[in-house]
Design a binder for these strands. Structure first.
Lengths: 234, 234
DNA sequence: ACTTGCATACGTGTATACAATCCAGACTTT
DNA sequence: AAAGTCTGGATTGTATACACGTATGCAAGT
């Protein structure tokens, strides 16, 4: 490698020693895909990316393989890579997954939350919601994901946490494409606060129920917007 | 590559064209790890494995990376690979995951099952249970996994299917170590048939409930045996 | 005897060269 | 003119050589 590695824009995080090359490439590519800087369906060529990042094919291929197994890029053997397309069926299965995992995880969180968790969650619940600017919209999306992830973390099961993290990642892509952006009715902070209140009251059933409603409504809204925008079924 | 690739023992499956090298290595290593031919904690060295399989490091590393991300092997940077250890906490989180996913998936299956699904499931429900021989025990484990996977497939959500597949894989390892083998009370075929009956009756709630009981009991039994066998908490 | 420092060997991390495969376009043939 | 085939280029798949970091064993000093 003969190029200085560009430092990953990492908000707040210390980033002491330079990240391992494949991890770094993975993170950057993933960010570009999730934020639709690399559009769904666009072609990815190893050589081109190597030149762009100033690395050889070996670490890059490791990153692409990882993205491939997470279904963010598609690799047709001996043919090439493409950024995974966005489909209605794919998004539906994602909503279904979230509906299965996050409500029970919230119920667990109601049982297992410490006072520190609750304080943290209360701080995460309120989101800055300013859809008039791109940056404001992006901040809102990240804040929303952070809240949901923080809930699952409170359930104290690392497997669940990883799963939801991955699901939220995939979830952000249609959102970033501004599908359903204008349809956003109101800031979901109110609903978030209700959920936190249920956790604080140790009301597992209520937490489960509120989370289910919350995810279902948001998912249906985006799904409708996607259908209206003409995304393919599969 | 100058060596004939050993064909993967694939029961029934056609295996038309030779599998891609990394996929093949991944499958073989995974099988060895899950069946505890490669014991938890044992060291894996790239060069050694390369010689053994007659391939170069590139495709092998791809397989190891995949296993690493699935938490079947652990890689400490610049130090080496080890087969992931088995811990009580890890297994507990796995049970919790199955308890969250499979019961709702069964409920979905009750709604979405076709007559063909039901026939298939009925055929999968009965397991050959002969714990007196190693082979009989292994067959039982595989049959059990196949049944649970067939249920989830009936839910018609590929994401759920992949998740449960991965969870069942990890689940088999403690079982293969014969932990809790002698404690096995009876063939679970009866419980499986009850679940299939609930699906056939389109009784989603009953299917969910039965599946939850089934997983909880099996999990607790293995967990107790693991604790008795002295597996570490973490 | 125990600790500390260094040298060496071992194993992973990266780069690059080579082989196999697929696709596109042009040419030939019917 | 249409269809089939062949050839060239592009891109991934694999192998291998080199660079770097880490651990281990030995020796010297306390």
């Amino acid at each position: 490698m003969n190029l200085v590695r560009p430092s990953l824009v990492e908000l707040g995080s210390a980033e002491i020693r330079p990240t391992a090359l494949p991890d770094h490439l993975y993170a950057v590519l993933k960010q570009k895909i999730l934020s639709c800087v690399l559009l769904p369906g666009s072609r990815l060529v190893e050589k081109t990316l190597c030149d762009e990042f100033g690395v050889s094919r070996t670490p890059l291929r490791e990153a692409l393989n990882r993205l491939n197994h997470e279904e963010l890029v598609i690799l047709q053997p001996n043919a090439g890579y493409r950024v995974a397309p966005i489909t209605l069926a794919g998004f539906r299965s994602l909503i279904e997954l979230r509906l299965i995992i996050e409500p029970p995880a919230s119920a667990l969180a109601a049982v297992r939350a410490t006072p520190a968790d609750l304080a943290d969650l209360a701080a995460c619940a309120d989101l800055p919601y300013d859809p008039s600017h791109d940056q404001g919209f992006a901040d809102y999306c990240r804040g929303n994901a952070r809240f949901h992830l923080r809930i699952v973390r409170t359930a104290r099961n690392p497997r669940l946490e990883n799963l939801v993290m991955s699901a939220l990642d995939l979830y952000q892509r249609p959102t970033y494409l501004r599908v359903g952006r204008q349809l956003d009715p109101a800031n979901p902070s109110a609903r978030h606060r209700e959920i936190v209140a249920a956790l604080a009251a140790r009301d597992a059933d209520q937490a489960r129920h509120l989370m289910e409603q919350h995810i279902r409504r948001g998912g249906e809204r985006i799904l409708e917007a996607m259908a209206a925008a003409g995304y393919p079924e599969a």
